[in-house]
Each structure stands twice: as C-alpha cells, then as structure tokens.
Amino acid sequence: MKMTILAAAWMVPLAVLATPNAEEVMKASFKDRGQAKVDRLNQDETQAACSKYFAAVPKDVAKKIEAANLKTIKYPADGKVMGDWKEGERIAQSGVGKQFSDNPANPAGGNCYACHQLSKAEISFGTIGPSLYNFGKLRGFTEAMQKYAYGKVYNAQAYSACSNMPRFGHNQILTEQQMKHVTALLMDPDSPVNK
C-alpha cells in the first residue's frame, strides 16, 4: 500500500500525458551532451520522408527528394574537385566526428571503409554500401565523372533518394578540401582504389 502511494507520487507528471506522441516521447528521452544537442532529432523533409517509407520509397517521392537534394550541391569556386588521394585515404579510414564523445575542434573523418571496400590493401571494410574498388578505372577518368563523384560525396541523396550514405557536404561533416581529397581517392589514376 505504502509502496503504491510512493510510486504514484513521483509518477504524477508523466500521467498527464494521456496518449503520448512518439516524437515527443523520443525527444524527452534524450538530453544534450557535448556537441550533440537534442535538436538533432528534428528532421528535415528528406529525413522525415525516408523514415516514413524507409526501404520502399514511392517513385514520385524519391524524385522530389533527389531534386531537392541536387539543389544543395555547391561545387568548389575554383572549379577543381580533385585533391590529394593520400589525404583522402586518411579521411576514409577515420570514423571520428560529430559524436558527443568527439572533440568538435578536431576534423571529422568520412569513415568510408565502415561501409565500402575501397583499396585492395584494406581488408577491414563494411558492406552496407557497394564496393568502390576501381571506381574511377571502371567509369573512366573524365572530368564529368570527377564532378559526379564530388557531388555524390557532397549529397548522395541527390542521386539516390534515402541512400544510407551521410550527406557529407550538405550536413557539413567534411570540408570542401576534405571532399576534394576523397574525390581524388576515388578518381585519381594513382590512387590505390584504381590499382
């Protein structure tokens, strides 16, 4: 009896929420920590649509998502999308950045190997994304393909709605310079990706 009363006393504030909305419950279940604030749970239109449909996005919705994301891509002002593939390899290996446990003063990685095969030498690669081994070699080392690769890193959902791949440029995970390096990792004929 005593137990029940005690319990009831500290449950009162929650009892007010009769039928809690999932999103409100979710927001109340997280707290700010370091650079990761609760507002990260707020969704933009792309995130909301991709959560709703998840694996099976209707074609018309997919088209809208791709068109909206295509508009966000900003190419470097100097017109050069290729950096240093060696720097790109380092970025591809690094999984730090944007976690509440990361120091926001340090540059983020791209963590490409978490999901993709890239060079033959790195055998610890994930399979969430397709293999990118020989990416440039298979597609041709053209300027158009370089630009496509840069755009894909910048915002993958411009080409593939609800892709699992982070929108590295659009969400400011990688800098312009870092994205140039990653593009070189994919597109430089000397990169181990193309060996």
């Binding site: 969704q43 991709c50 944007k98 995970i173």
Partner: peptide, 16 residues
C-alpha cells in the same frame, strides 16, 4: 509502436 518509430527515425548530421 513508439519503439518501432524510434528504430526508423533518421536524424542528426549523418541521417542515421
């Protein structure tokens, strides 16, 4: 239902 919704909720800088 709430748990399921949370499971599919994409958000944050990485859209995860």
């Amino acid at each position: 239902e709430i748990g399921k919704k949370m499971f599919f909720h994409r958000g944050g800088p990485h859209d995860f």
